[in-house]
Design a protein around this nucleic acid. Structure first.
Length: 567
RNA sequence: UGGGGCGUGGCCAAGUGGUAAGGCGACGGACUCUGGAUCCGUUAUUCGGUGGUUCGAAUCCAUCCGCCCCAGCCA
């Protein structure tokens, strides 16, 4: 008995489905689908659609199909089919035995086209693309009937058959629906159903010389699969009358198309054209570059499917165009990774610490908990010795107000270790600190003292002789404006590319347990952020990608105008 | 100046005639062997504007304004 259940408000699509369930429309059945075109990699925007469609099927005890909308062989490739399947699966979706391709239906679609010709609802048109544009009219003026609009059924049948046989060159003829050239909805002005394309299809090979257009293929594919609710984005709202026309004119099972608004994300681009450009022209290192908003990029970056799903859920669904805040996505990964990820210590920009009163050659193996959020995560042993590395940024000769970390004479705690105090900074000829000479309090073993002395700062560290060298890749936003398309007139979004989106730290020092990783392992580097082992890792030389930083209230405070300090 | 949509705090978003949920962010504070996490406060007298209907409107009506999409033989 739910008593104080939070009322989770449904979205408008689920409201519509609720009505259909109540009325018994579709036999109180729910069946959705995700219909990607295999002409690019999936990105976070697709995740929203997948999450919506799959989530609905799951919530209503219905079914979900994965269907490739592969009606244009000139743009589609098997590589994309493979990557899409991998990404959809990674998101936690199980399409069971329902993997389909629009190309599976080419025969049926063709038969239906013949049916439409026979019923006088379709005709072969000899206008070329240019001429067709002329005849189409404009937004404010009606179009004119094609001179081929009134061919006899026999002639249409003959011509269409010869199109199918490959008798005519590309672009010379089309099969068009005979609807209304004066319709205010341009999609209804005798839209093309089939075009001639002498192209090899990634699945049907050279069987076809004509290929159906999206508008002719999509609804019928939905119909064949028994889809109940065909969910798509807003720009297809204008196509719904055509979707309905095809199904009704054919007299076949008629699913309901429902449109929702896609969301943009700040500091990134999601258009297929731009994503392809970034990859092909090497602005990034491939589709799975951790800076890319692609599913494969997010995966390599260290995002979890759970975080991506949570993000989609938090944003919700609506019909209003919007731009989601990237911080919202980051909040979702932080929340997930905080609970599930082991804490480790890695020094990104090391500076050596020598503890002068610590016995030379001695090594203590300290017990350290792996995750304070999860006792079940257990503990590990960390070596502590006379020479250590700490973060160079954790030392300031002139400590600003509010500084908790190391500076001359100030005592700090080494996490899980001892209290230490720095008395001398050794500098090189350039005046850079190269070594910090410190002393420790032997009574502070484990991080606390008998006198219960408080220290404000706790630093992460690594034993110099035990540390493993690591490469750490720090990422910032790929673009330095919330809206990358915010450019002066005539400008290009690429002008907003962030030159600092990738910083490689080749000299990081990691605790010894991280020596050998395969790629994909996720960690919290204490006090820094969440990181994910990259597949580039080699035994003894791990490589990490920074998924997201930890929240940094000190850094934020220090960077405030009024709080700014030297250093 | 054709058609189709949309406008609720900085960003998402509930709300469907009864007196503005929630999340993110931001700002304070508590706590802390991660300046992390956690916790506790604060953050829309107002729903694109203006009129109207009503005891009562973000919700109904009118009108105006703004934004998005459509003239591929792309999806």
């Amino acid at each position: 008995m739910p008593t104080d259940e939070t009322v989770v408000s449904k979205d408008f699509i689920r409201d519509l489905i609720d009505e259909d369930m109540r009325s018994g429309r579709f036999g109180a059945r729910v069946h959705t689908r995700f219909p990607p075109e295999p002409n690019g990699y999936l990105h976070i925007g697709h995740a929203m659609s997948i999450n919506l469609n799959y989530g609905i099927a799951r919530d209503y005890g219905g079914k979900f199909n994965l269907r490739f909308d592969d009606t244009n062989p000139t743009k589609e490739e098997q590589e994309y089919v493979d990557s899409i399947m991998a990404d959809v699966r990674w998101l936690g979706v199980d399409w069971e035995d329902r993997l389909f391709f629009a190309s599976d239906y080419f025969d049926q679609l063709c038969e239906w086209a013949i049916q439409l010709i026979k019923t006088g609802n379709a005709y072969v048109c000899d206008l070329n693309a240019d001429e067709m544009r002329q005849y189409r009219g404009t937004l404010t003026e009606p179009g004119r009937d094609s001179p081929y609009r009134n061919r006899t059924i026999e002639e249409n049948l003959d011509l269409f058959e010869r199109m199918r046989q490959g008798e005519f060159p590309d672009g010379t003829r089309t099969l068009r629906a005979k609807i209304d050239m004066a319709s205010p909805n341009l999609n209804m002005r005798d839209p093309v159903m089939y075009r001639i394309l002498h192209a090899t299809h990634h699945r049907t090979g050279d069987k076809w010389h004509i290929y159906p257009m999206y508008d002719y293929a999509h609804g019928q594919s939905d119909s064949i699969e028994g889809i109940t609710h065909s969910i798509c984005t807003l720009e297809f709202e204008d196509h719904r009358p055509l979707y309905d026309w095809c199904l009704d004119t054919l007299g076949i099972y008629h699913p309901q198309q429902i449109e929702f608004a896609r969301k943009a994300l700040t500091y990134t681009v999601l258009s297929k054209r731009k994503l392809i450009e970034l990859v092909k022209n090497n602005y990034v290192n491939g589709w799975d570059d951790p800076r890319m908003p692609t599913i494969s990029g997010l995966r390599r970056r260290g995002y979890t499917p759970e975080a991506v799903r949570e993000f989609c859920a938090r944003l919700g669904v609506s019909k209003a165009n919007s731009i989601a805040d990237f911080q919202q996505l980051e909040a979702c990964v932080r929340e997930d990774l905080n609970k599930h990820t082991a804490r480790v210590m890695v020094v990104l920009k090391p500076v050596k610490v020598v503890i002068e009163n610590y016995p030379e050659g001695e090594v203590e193996w300290i017990d350290a908990d792996n995750n304070p959020e999860d006792p079940a995560a257990g503990t590990r042993k960390l070596p502590f010795s006379r020479e250590l590395y700490i973060e160079a940024d954790d030392y300031r000769e002139d400590a600003p107000k509010g500084w908790f970390r190391m500076s001359p004479g100030r005592e700090v705690r080494l996490k899980h270790g001892y209290f230490i105090k720095c008395h001398t900074a050794v500098k090189n000829a350039q005046g850079e600190v190269v070594e910090l000479r410190c002393t420790y309090d032997p009574a502070s073993a484990g991080g606390s003292t008998p006198d219960n002395r408080k220290v404000q700062g706790t630093l992460h560290w690594v034993s110099a002789t035990h540390a493993v060298d690591a490469e750490v890749r720090l990422y910032e936003q790929l673009f330095n404006k919330p809206n990358p398309d915010d450019v002066p007139p005539g400008g290009d979004y690429k002008a907003n590319l962030n030159p600092n989106s990738l910083t490689v730290l080749a000299g990081a020092k990691a605790e010894p347990g991280l020596a050998t990783l395969n790629g994909g392992e996720r960690f919290q580097f204490m006090r820094q952020g969440y990181f994910c082992a990259d597949p580039d890792s080699r035994p003894g030389k791990p490589v990490f990608n920074r998924t997201v930083t930890l929240k940094d209230t000190w850094g934020k405070a220090e960077n405030k105008p009024q709080g700014k300090k030297s250093g």
